[in-house]
């Protein structure tokens, strides 16, 4: 199994195996064997001609897979949906990224794509929704908005003609993420949905399921007005910070204080995501909530969630949930 080595005892091993077998039988019912490996021939009906999509190659009239994944057919189009792979951006995706570099008028973000994404200074709006005026002062103050290694939430704007990927953050909901943790999982486990930014009220936690497999779990921020504060104000703050970097002002301490309960909730949710991702189950808000509730109803400590018993329980829960779902459907 990938990523983690569980020390299961005999019964746990059997239970996990049974849960996984149940899942397998469920999926094989609904899904015919459409999995392919590299260099497999994809059977197609030649009479109506096919359009070869992603992950396919033409070889002497045969359609051959170049990836491991699942064959998808939409009318005449045949393509392969990959499972484990890097993120493939689509316009409008909500993503979480890490700033790797500040370049003239732009930030470069690592978003688990084959190249770094670009967030232009001009693709960010001022807090009141006004288009940014391009001034030299603005450019000089870029570090007061995002620094290297900051975590940023943004939206995919699209590919530029030179092949680079551009992002935008034109709304209050995007911007720098603070006081929380970011988790990296495989992007295929995150499904594209209407909602990717969630506020879990019962925990006081913000959860962002980035399409690129970066998951943000952090303290809830009321209307992210801190996105871009007044430039001069920030600059002053920076100055004071550098002069008395060891001492935080009382005001600042209060601003950055996160209650113990919230911090525990963050860790609990983060561990739930870790367990789900390690087991290879798709990660959605509902499942995360369910997993968190399961752990707290069992009175498990946060660290115990990463123990083998909880893995088995989550796997069993997933199996029953899916079987319920298919029953309801059928």
């Amino acid at each position: 199994m990938r990523g983690f080595q569980l020390s299961l005892n005999q019964t746990q091993k059997l239970r996990l195996q049974r849960a996984l077998e149940q899942l397998e039988s469920l999926s094989s019912k609904s899904n015919s064997n459409a999995s392919v490996a590299v260099a497999d021939t994809i059977p197609v009906n030649y009479e109506d001609g096919v359009l070869k999509g992603h992950g396919t190659l033409d070889l002497d009239g045969e359609v051959v897979a170049t990836l491991c994944g699942v064959v998808e057919r939409v009318n005449k189009l045949v393509y392969i949906r990959t499972l484990r792979a890097r993120y493939k951006p689509e316009t409008g995706d909500i993503i979480v990224g890490r700033v790797t570099e500040i370049a003239p008028k732009r930030w470069r973000l690592d978003i688990n794509f084959s190249q770094d994404a670009v967030l232009m200074l001009s693709s960010m709006n001022l807090p009141d929704g006004i288009q940014r005026r391009r001034t030299a002062v603005d450019e000089l103050n870029m570090r007061s908005i995002f620094e290297e290694n900051d975590i940023v939430c943004a939206e995919v704007r699209g590919f530029q003609h030179d092949g680079s990927l551009h992002l935008q953050a034109r709304s209050q909901k995007y911007g720098k993420l603070e006081r929380g943790q970011v988790l990296t999982i495989s992007p295929y486990l995150v499904k594209r949905r209407k909602q990717h930014l969630h506020y879990l009220e019962e925990f006081g936690v913000d959860l962002i399921l980035g399409c690129n497999g970066f998951i943000w779990v952090g303290e809830h921020v009321e209307a992210k007005g801190i996105l871009i504060e007044d430039q001069t104000d920030k600059a002053e703050q920076l100055n004071t910070k550098s002069s008395s970097s060891t001492f935080m002002s009382l005001e600042e301490q209060e601003r950055t204080y996160t209650s113990l309960e919230t911090r525990q909730n963050i860790c609990r949710i983060a561990n739930a995501v870790r367990v789900l991702a390690n087991l290879g189950f798709s990660v959605t808000v509902e499942v995360i909530k369910e997993t968190v509730n399961l752990s707290s109803s069992l009175n498990l400590d946060i660290h115990e969630m990463l123990g083998s018993e909880f893995y088995v329980l989550v796997a069993e829960g997933e199996a029953t949930r899916k079987s319920m779902f298919t029953k309801k459907k059928g």
Binding site: L26, D40, C68
Partner: peptide, 13 residues
């Protein structure tokens, strides 16, 4: 590879 792909797929659901 095929076995691995199938596993990933059925687990994801």
């Amino acid at each position: 590879l095929l076995e691995n792909t199938k596993q990933l797929e059925y687990r994801r659901g």
